[in-house]
Nucleic acid binder design. Structure first.
Length: 580
RNA sequence: CGGGAUGUAGCGCAGUUUGGUAGCGCACCUCGCUUGGGACGAGGGGGUCGCACGUUCGAAUCGUGUCAUCCCGACCA
């Protein structure tokens, strides 16, 4: 490819609306252009990168025994009603109507469609197991798209779905996919960590995410991990053992005491001169319009996803001060933020109040708790005597770095991660409601045991940039770079330079290298800057030293130039791409 | 959804306070000169100033509305 004809416009400056490195770099280097919020054009360079990643994914999926197909991007409401998700998916699901006023949606994921395909085609246990996948654009109408390709509304995803006759079969395929994913990301030049995670709106029980570990804002997930063993988990799923804390108060009887202006845990601790671990704090959440009280030890925080799962809801948010006031009034109290307690709070609007306690409060003795009276708290309280321990006691706590690993007891650490892949054990979550069944050996009807496995193709590309760049531009891993190499004749007017450059260019092409020759009549600096910015893994510079028979060879990753013969440089590139 | 900010040429921005013929840098085209880390000179093309309505002799500039984009927060009792 001639640089003069390559469709790429590099910019002198970073775009003003980009925050994270991958977004800035990909726009500036001419890979992507925003069409509208969260929606990007993939320009030729970007498309080459995406195709590289797709092909790695294809090879590994096919090798793992999966079969590729392609499902429609637009989906009918009816299937989503069958699974029950039309009601619960929320605003992320982009809904629209056709000319006949029939309701449709843009596919955010394809469980419903694949399940309908499977039930039409897979009638017998003899046909199972099967794993089907596609690579396709998805659309999720994110609340707040950001970070360029990392959290777009439209993005490219590989989604695979497995159908088995048993949980054992599913687990085997799950492991098979986990191994395929590990190979895929390794081939893409990414170090990933496979972490336990919550299964979210997709549903199911067991799930893991593949995270590219980063220390930047681009990592939207907190990942807890242990150096002592292999434990690692997304914060929405991480569990930990507590470090010792004071959990029994010194009060000898329970009473209500004045605690003026103690709106926060800190203020209350200071006023009573106690550690936060002696307080039961009560948080008011609204889950799908219904009120939920969450009780947790004062020094700990609620993990909203865990709470949501404990209640079995879809959408969760903290209650507003107005809602809290309303609830107080309705139950005959006059209290505000800082003084709320579970006792006597029974209803809100048309709903009963659900109370959920975190495990941390169960064993507290002589503790402090809100009693729904302004400027007062109960002290020396105990469960069941002074206040009822809720029926539901479970883990709704956000783990913290420094707490102990649930497996081996060493202190947990935390880092940030970009989720590039995930694997779920769905079980019969979709096959049952959608009546997707096969006949077993006994002629009996059974629902498929399903799994699903996603990889964000476009996000993987962006994550690769986050992991490989410097102040001059991108440093693509060879396997996913848009081109393997660029040949730069410093002066296009110098016949010897041009001839050598062309010879190298032709040689490389002949050996299967994807290569660009920078034939532009530009000054050397311009070409060097563009080459670094675009991120060609190898640069072969043909300049004055060609008089001594030498070119300069630069490995972008290492960022240093070495003089050598043209054929040596070509040899290095060819050897490298043959090793891919 | 709430709060904040911004919309002026492909990109980055000035001009808006105080209304009076739309500017700068980069990019693009032509010529010259230059050719090892985003040169220089001269000339040139490109914008209904997000959109609508209003005020005014006159609106990028003032007012109202609207749309879009970006950031922050979705308030840990």
């Amino acid at each position: 490819m001639k640089m003069s004809k390559l469709f790429v416009q590099t910019l002198r400056e970073f775009p003003s609306d980009a925050e994270v490195i991958s977004h800035k770099m990909l726009v500036r280097a001419g890979y992507i252009r925003k069409l509208t919020s969260g929606v990007y054009n993939y320009l030729p360079l970007m498309w080459r990168v995406l195709k590289k990643i797709e092909n790695i994914v294809r090879e590994e999926m096919d090798n793992a025994g999966a079969q590729e197909l392609l499902m429609p991007f637009v989906q009918p409401k009816e299937l989503w009603e069958e699974s029950g998700r039309w009601e619960v998916y929320g605003k992320e699901l982009m809904r629209l109507r056709d000319r006949h006023n029939r309701e449709m949606c843009l596919g955010p994921t394809h469980e419903e469609i694949i399940t309908s395909i499977a039930r039409d085609g897979l009638k017998s246990y003899k046909q199972l197991p099967v794993n089907l996948y596609q690579i396709q654009s998805k659309f999720r109408d994110e609340v707040r798209p950001r970070f360029g390709l990392l959290r777009g509304r439209e993005f490219i995803m590989k989604d695979a779905y497995s159908f088995d006759v048993s949980q054992e079969g599913l687990e085997k395929e799950y492991e098979n996919m986990a191994q395929a994913y590990t190979r895929i990301f390794k081939r893409c030049g990414l170090n990933t960590k496979m972490v336990q995670s919550d299964s979210g709106a997709i549903g199911g029980s067991v799930s893991h995410e593949f995270m590219v570990i980063t220390d930047t804002d681009a990592g939207e997930n907190d990942v807890f991990y242990c150096d002592g063993c292999d434990y690692s988990a997304n914060s929405n799923h991480a569990v930990s053992r507590l470090v010792d804390a004071k959990t029994a108060g010194d009060w000898t009887k329970s009473e209500i005491v004045d605690t003026p202006n103690t709106h926060s845990i800190e203020e209350l601790c200071e006023f009573l001169n106690i550690p936060a671990s002696l307080i039961v704090k009560t948080l008011v959440y609204i889950v799908d319009k219904k009120p939920v009280l969450a009780l947790i030890r004062g020094d700990k925080q609620v993990e909203e996803t865990k709470l949501l799962n404990a209640v079995g809801g879809v959408e969760i948010r903290i209650a507003t001060p107005g809602e809290i006031e309303e609830m107080m009034e309705l139950n005959g109290f006059e209290a505000e933020k800082g003084f709320i307690g579970p006792k006597g709070l029974n209803k809100y609007g048309e709903y009963e109040v659900t109370v959920i306690a975190d495990e941390t409060v169960k064993d507290l003795k002589n503790f402090v708790i809100g009693v729904n009276q302004k400027d007062k708290h109960g002290v020396g309280y105990n469960w069941d005597g002074d206040v009822q321990l809720p029926e539901i006691v479970t883990d709704i706590r956000l783990a913290e770095a420094g707490e102990l690993c649930p497996q081996c007891g060493q202190p947990l650490k935390v880092t940030r991660g970009i989720e590039v892949g995930n694997i779920f054990q769905l079980g019969t979550k979709y096959s049952k409601p959608m009546n997707a069944v096969y006949l077993d050996q006994n002629g009996k009807t059974q629902p498929y045991v399903m799994g699903c496995y996603g990889i964000g193709i476009s996000r993987t590309a962006a994550a690769a940039v986050e992991a490989h760049y410097d102040e001059h531009g991108i440093k693509w891993p060879l396997a996913i770079a848009p081109y393997h190499a660029v040949v730069i004749p410093v002066s296009t007017k110098d016949e010897q330079q041009m001839k050598t450059a062309n010879d190298i260019y032709e040689t490389l092409k002949k050996h299967g290298a994807e290569v660009v020759i920078d034939d532009r009549d530009e000054r050397a600096g311009v070409k060097f800057k563009d080459a670094d910015l675009i991120g060609f893994p190898y640069q072969i510079i043909v300049g004055k030293s060609i008089a001594e028979g030498n070119v300069e060879f630069k490995v972008r990753e290492k960022d240093e130039k070495t003089a050598m013969k043209p054929e040596e440089a070509a040899e290095i590139v060819i050897t490298a791409i043959n090793a891919l």
